[in-house]
């Protein structure tokens, strides 16, 4: 139970970081943290007591295995996260190029 709560804590830290921080880079770090929290939660959901890794091999007999599907699925989610993060960082660099600052309170041309 504790691990799930720690996951929730990590997710909350990420969301707090997105909502409260002013620096663009810190916001991106917040996005990454909460992304990892969700991914980790998905892997933990798949854990079975005393289970071994879900890889088939000719030598050993398979008795107790963790759920294999979330591990495959989380890999996809991580790749998506990579794409989003790369794009966000590229945007942040361009923004710094144009505005000369990372502070979102100073980057406010759009309003209304």
């Amino acid at each position: 139970m504790l691990v799930y709560l720690l996951c929730l804590l990590l997710f909350s830290i990420g969301i707090y970081c997105i909502l409260r921080k002013r620096n663009i880079i810190k916001i991106i770090v917040g996005v990454i943290i909460s992304e990892y929290a969700v991914n980790m939660f998905f892997v933990l959901v798949a854990y079975r007591m005393e289970g071994r890794s879900p890889v088939f091999s000719p030598e050993s007999q398979i008795e107790n295995m963790v759920d294999a599907l979330p591990q495959a699925v989380v890999l996809t989610a991580i790749v998506i996260g990579l794409a989003t993060t790369a794009l966000l960082i590229a945007l942040a660099m361009r923004i710094y190029d144009k505005y000369g600052t990372f502070d979102i309170t100073k980057i406010r041309e759009l309003r209304g």
């Binding site: 790369a86 960082i89 590229a90 660099m93 361009r94 710094y96 190029d97």
Partner: peptide, 16 residues
């Protein structure tokens, strides 16, 4: 390509 894009972008902005 992502890595190269990020690295080259940085150098362009430093040049200015």
């Amino acid at each position: 390509a992502i890595f190269v894009a990020l690295v080259l972008l940085k150098f362009e902005s430093e040049k200015k």
